[in-house]
Simulated assay, not measured.
Amino acid sequence: MAKIAFLGMGAMGSRMARTLLDAGHDLVVWNRTPERCDPLIEAGATGAETPRDAAAAAEFTISMLRDTDVSREVWCDPDTGAFAGLPESSVAIESSTITPEGAAELGEFARERGLTFLEAPVSGTLPQAENGALVYFLGGEAETAKRVHDVLEPLAKAQHHVGTWGMGARMKLATNAMLGVQVAAWAEIIPMLERGGMDIDLALEALSSTPIWTPNAPYITGTMQRSDFTPQFPVDLISKDFRYAIAEGGEARMPMTEAAKRLFARASEAGHGDENMTGVVQVNRD
């Protein structure tokens, strides 16, 4: 078992950290709001006051943070950042959804200091984090990807080494943009069927027998039909990912993603930003 530092106790990070703790790893945890670490500490983890302190004795340091700016601060702050405390023999693993440029910057920052860095964003939400079913997109040296394999194994359904720094972020943005476009499409179709007086159960049963029915369609349509918008992937977070993806691909070349981004922005403006991404259907029901 390894000594692992985990930075970020949000909805995803806390569940990932708990999975690693349950797998028997020696875990050190940090969060900007310290009380978010309390459940992990009560379960056997050790708390740290700063990212630097958390990383100081760890073999692997993993972060799961909100965005590029927060990630840069947590890793690179000269006084409290994780890179300032990271031992040369350890590996820094960035699992946050950040921009490709941000991932490459972190990699170069680490290399200049003789440190080893791997980006490892994930596809999956809360149930996958709890049940070890995340899909990893690994960006960095192939040898580093092999080195972290066993550490990430309790969390992973699959681990894909997709290239150098920045490539993992591109894969994650591609995944989330495709997901968001699908959610936006269903957010139009479900209200259209409802307004037409359709029995939605019958309509979805019929649609499920056609080639357009994707593996995530039962989840998307089911939460929309039940109006169950308990956050797993909130509207505001996927909106951030749309912005990153469009900045990467170009607004003129991603018209469907841009249209989906506008729908999600409308949902945020209507007060649904903290709700699950499927809550965007409410905009078209109004």
Rank of each mutant, 00 (worst) to 15 (best):
L7V: 02
L118D: 02
P211L: 12
V181P: 10
A187V: 07
T210M: 14
A217R: 01
E143G: 14
N276W: 01
P78W: 00
T278F: 00
L152V: 11
I98K: 03
V280H: 02
I238N: 09
D286G: 15
W165P: 03
F60D: 01
V183Y: 01
L86E: 02
F233E: 03
L65Q: 08
L118K: 08
P234G: 11
L204R: 08
I220R: 04
G250R: 00
M12D: 00
L115C: 11
F242H: 06
A260W: 01
I220D: 06
N176W: 00
P231R: 01
P231L: 05
E94T: 10
V162W: 02
D22M: 09
A55V: 08
T278L: 02
A245F: 10
I41S: 01
T164S: 15
A48T: 08
A203F: 11
H160I: 09
P154R: 08
E153Q: 13
G81E: 02
A92N: 11
Q225M: 13
E112V: 05
S96W: 08
G139Y: 04
L173V: 02
E141S: 13
Q282W: 03
P34A: 09
W165R: 00
E88A: 15
A184K: 05
F229A: 06
D77P: 08
T99G: 13
P100I: 07
A184I: 01
L179K: 04
H25G: 14
F233R: 00
F137N: 03
L138E: 06
R170N: 14
S90E: 08
